[in-house]
């Protein structure tokens, strides 16, 4: 469903050129949930953003549903109907002065899916577990979890085949995270979706995905199956470090990481 070969993404930061993604290759089968794990600055979100067309400066090859993506930012309209994205922060991704109804009807208008708009909106709200009373509410009248449900509904309303999820639960409390993860799993099964999930949280990726790639400094350090992750049979020392850190604080492990740690950089 998705094939990426030797993807390179660069940013211009003043006079400096930042190579955010340095030769990433991966493939995702139809119906699969594929995870990208890594820390901030690893390039995991940039891979997703290049795929969705948000980062125009890329080279390499990206194929979605058998079609080669043209270089640059421009994507045919049909692409956006097929591939939708959900972002981390539901507080930032919904327009504060637009009701849920407007947020959901706009993509339908853009893609001329204006037949039975009422029905489509009500069905998609039910799909994400919101009753019809939410339709005319504003984002500030919703909790964080409800907003993320609306953001997922907005992506789903175009009936995409692929959902790109960028840290979809990182801004949510654990009890709400569980609800959203359950929702995503149900939607994947019911709508036969292919998903790419970006997260810094190894447990979230391990729970949701069958396969994943661990990224660091723009490269894939290790492709992993969920079986390898569960068994702890990981080869790369960096993956092992992430795995141990995910298990909580351990004085001995922490002491190891203190020596020779980088002081500057990062952030981006």
């Amino acid at each position: 469903m998705i094939a990426i070969e030797d993807l390179q993404v660069t940013f211009q930061a003043g006079a400096r050129t930042v190579r955010a993604v340095r030769g990433v290759s991966l493939s995702v089968a139809p119906g699969e949930v594929f995870g990208l794990v890594g820390e901030s600055g690893s390039g995991k979100s940039t891979v997703l953003r290049a795929l969705s067309g948000l980062n125009p400066d890329w080279t390499g090859r990206m194929v979605v549903a058998g079609e080669d993506l043209p270089p640059g930012r421009r994507r045919p309209k049909a692409f956006h109907k097929r591939v939708q994205m959900v972002f981390q922060d539901p507080f930032a991704s919904l327009h504060p002065r637009q009701t849920v109804d407007i947020a959901l009807s706009e993509p339908l208008r853009i893609h001329r899916m204006t037949d039975d708009m009422d029905g489509r909106i009500e069905r998609v709200l039910t799909d994400v577990g919101l009753d019809r009373s939410f339709r005319f509410r504003y984002p500030h009248q919703l909790s964080g979890g409800q907003r993320q449900r609306v953001a997922i509904a907005r992506a789903l309303i175009l009936e995409p085949a692929i959902l790109l999820l960028d840290e979809p639960t990182s801004a949510l409390d654990v009890s709400v995270q569980a609800e959203i993860l359950n929702l995503l799993r149900r939607l994947r099964a019911e709508h036969d979706l292919t998903m790419m999930l970006v997260s810094h949280n190894l447990a979230v990726v391990g729970h949701m995905c069958g396969r994943m790639a661990v990224m660091k400094e723009g490269r894939v350090v290790e492709p992993l199956s969920v079986a390898q992750l569960r068994a702890g049979t990981v080869a790369d020392p960096y993956t092992r470090q992430l795995l141990r850190a995910a298990e909580g604080y351990d004085r001995a492990v922490a002491a190891e990481t203190l020596d020779g740690s980088p002081g500057f950089g990062g952030g981006a």
């Binding site: 810094h200 995910a246 922490a254 002491a255 990481t257 740690s261």
Partner: peptide, 14 residues
């Protein structure tokens, strides 16, 4: 903070 840096900061507090 990233998990690895998180460990370092915790070690300092510890």
């Amino acid at each position: 903070l990233d998990v690895t840096v998180q460990m370092q900061v915790l070690a300092i507090l510890d």
